[in-house]
Design a protein around this nucleic acid. Structure first.
Lengths: 106, 106
DNA sequence: TATGTTTGCAACCGATTGGTTTCGTAAATG
DNA sequence: CATTTACGAAACCAATCGGTTGCAAACATA
C-alpha cells in the first residue's frame, strides 16, 4: 500500500482535515462535525493520514486528539521546489537562445 | 471523475512524467522509454494529465508532442502556501502565549 | 499501393478507494 | 453497577485505478 503525502492530499476531505488541524488539534468527533460524511468515514481518513505520519495521536481519557505533523509536508514542498527549479532552468536556456538570436540579428 | 492537480500527482509515474516534461516536450514513445510499463500504460497517464490541463498536445505529423503547462501547478502551490500561512499564524499565536507567560513571570 | 510506425481507444482484470453499517471496547457518567 | 459516549476495527459495497492485450486510424516510407 502506497502511503505518502502525495496520496494523502489527493482526497479533498483529507486536504480539508489537514487545514482544520493546521489551526489546532481536534478529536475525531469534532473533525467529523465539519463534514457531511459519517464519523467512521472521517476516522478512516484519520487512519490514512496517521499512517502517512502527517497526523499524530494523543490519547486523553477516552478522547483522542489528532495533531498535525507539519514536518511531513516538507516532502511535498521539496518535490514542488525541485519542479520549480527545473522550470527555471528551462527558462534560462530559453533566455540563452533568445540572446543568441539577438546577437545574430546584429 | 475528479480531475485535479492533487489527484494527478498522487501517482509516482505521473510525477516522473511531469519532471521529464519540465525539461522539454516529448512524444509518448520517448516518454515510455523511461519507464518499465508499456506504452499504453504511459498513454493513459498522459490522457489523465491532459484532462487535468497539466499537459497540452501538439500534433506534428503522426507524432504528438506533449508540453507541460506549468501554470496548472499553481493550484498545488496555492494550497501549500495557504497551509503554510495557517501554520505560521498558529506559531504567532503560540508566540503570543509564550510572551504572556513571560510577562506574567515578571 | 503495400508496409511499417506512431498513436489513441476499448475491453478486460485484479487491487485499491471511499463510503456505509455493524460491532466491540474502554472511559465517563448517573 | 447500568448507561451513555468516544472511538477503532471489520465486513461489505460500488466505483475507480493502473495495468494489460488487441485493435483501428493516421501518417511516413518503400
Amino acid at each position: 500500500m502506497r502511503r505518502d503525502v502525495f496520496q494523502a492530499i489527493a482526497d479533498p476531505t483529507r486536504r480539508a482535515i489537514i487545514m482544520l488541524l493546521a489551526v489546532g488539534a481536534l478529536t475525531p468527533n469534532a473533525i467529523a462535525e465539519n463534514f457531511d460524511s459519517s464519523r467512521q468515514a472521517v476516522s478512516k481518513h484519520l487512519r490514512i493520514l496517521t499512517e502517512c505520519e502527517i497526523l499524530t495521536q494523543e490519547q486523553k481519557g477516552r478522547e483522542i486528539h489528532y495533531h498535525l505533523n507539519a514536518g511531513k509536508m516538507k516532502d511535498l514542498e521539496k518535490w514542488l521546489e525541485q519542479f520549480k527549479q527545473l522550470m527555471a532552468k528551462r527558462f534560462d536556456q530559453l533566455d540563452t537562445v533568445l540572446e543568441q538570436l539577438k546577437s545574430k540579428g546584429k
